[in-house]
């Protein structure tokens, strides 16, 4: 673990450096237009000559103005510190110091990223729990009922190969039309995106006990629920957690996509609004918030996984 710290930090530093360097050619055209308006002389001076030049060539020929690339308002590629500032502004400052923030009013400000993250997180979490529970239930049914196994499992496997998230906008719009709004439509999307991977993973897991172990249970005259509870479910745990990690990532994407058609809060709504109004730092900040949420959700599952496996006596973790 410790051997990896230095290389990882180096890779992150290189990524950051590449990001800063990329800002130069990405923003140079807008920077030069602005500088020209402010009275600076630019090489080449005629706007028509610049139009056909590549961004990289422009950046190389005008090094004097390069610094402005990192402080552009509405930049095509905002610099990392601009994104960090936006993130700080819309989380800590908005909630802590503004008159709409949680400190002043006791409720989250609807302009803060914390609020939008909470909207997304709550829908994702509720849907994820429902979807996972249904998936586990269906998997138990499939393992115990041959007709269900043969009928349903092939479709559950096929569902993994199709872009099922494309249903998300339709689900939201249709449920809105019948008057169901807010959390529920997004939770439904999040649930069905969790449901299929968990079902497939859990069926595989519940089937890991081999004939020898099942025979042993039979010699102890264990009932079907006992076999399930004492042999199949513990054996399925590693598979369950692997599929939960896939499911939670998918359901977060589903919630974000579900927030696109109806602009009522959430990180997806925030990204789309940012892309409509050219607020690139807002998109980047929302993107980092989404990454943070994904990391948080996966971290939570890993933590539960470790505790469960440790209590089950799996020493490796």
């Amino acid at each position: 673990m410790r051997r990896s710290v230095l290389p990882v930090l180096t890779v992150l530093a290189v990524l950051l450096a590449v990001w800063y360097a990329a800002c130069l050619p990405m923003n140079i055209r807008e920077v030069l237009t602005e500088a020209e308006r402010a009275g600076a002389t630019i090489d080449p001076p005629a706007a028509i000559d610049r139009r056909d030049m590549s961004r990289l060539a422009l950046a190389l020929r005008n090094p004097a103005h390069a610094g402005l690339s990192w402080s552009q308002d509405r930049a095509r590629l905002p610099a990392p510190h601009q994104v960090a500032a936006e993130f700080w502004q819309t989380t800590v400052v908005e909630e802590g110091y503004s008159r709409r923030g949680i400190v002043q009013t006791g409720s989250l400000s609807n302009r803060s990223l914390v609020y939008h993250a909470w909207v997304t997180l709550s829908a994702t979490a509720i849907g994820f729990v429902i979807g996972a529970a249904l998936g586990i239930a269906l998997a138990i049914g499939i393992v115990h009922n041959r007709a269900m196994d043969l009928s349903v499992l092939p479709w559950a496997v096929i569902s993994q190969t199709i872009p099922i998230v494309a249903l998300a906008p339709m689900v939201v719009v249709v449920l809105n039309a019948v008057g169901v709004q807010g959390l529920l439509p997004k939770a439904i999307i999040s649930a069905y995106l969790t449901f299929f991977p968990v079902t497939v993973g859990m069926v595989k897991g519940l089937r890991t006990p081999d004939a020898m172990q099942l025979d042993q249970m039979r010699t102890w005259s264990a009932s079907v629920p006992q076999v399930l509870w004492k042999l199949r479910l513990p054996a399925a745990m590693p598979y369950l957690f692997a599929s939960l990690k896939i499911g939670v990532a998918a359901s977060l994407v589903g919630t974000i996509v579900g927030e696109l058609p109806v602009q009522r809060g959430g990180l997806g709504a925030r990204m789309l609004a940012g892309s409509y109004y050219g607020q690139t730092t807002q998109i980047w900040a929302a993107l980092f918030m989404a990454a943070l949420l994904a990391a948080l959700l996966i971290w939570a599952i890993v933590a539960i996984e470790r505790r469960t496996l440790r209590r089950m006596g799996v020493a490796a973790l």
Binding site: P7, V8, M26, R76, L77, A249, I256, L267, M271, W284
Partner: peptide, 29 residues
């Protein structure tokens, strides 16, 4: 091996993120 130790933890972290969120930025570019 140095690249493996530096890049792989970052890559497996990024693999779990909702990368589709970069779509609005890339559509802009």
């Amino acid at each position: 091996d140095w690249l493996r130790r530096g890049l792989m933890p970052v890559a497996s972290f990024l693999a779990a993120l909702p990368i589709v969120g970069t779509a609005p930025i890339l559509v802009m570019w």
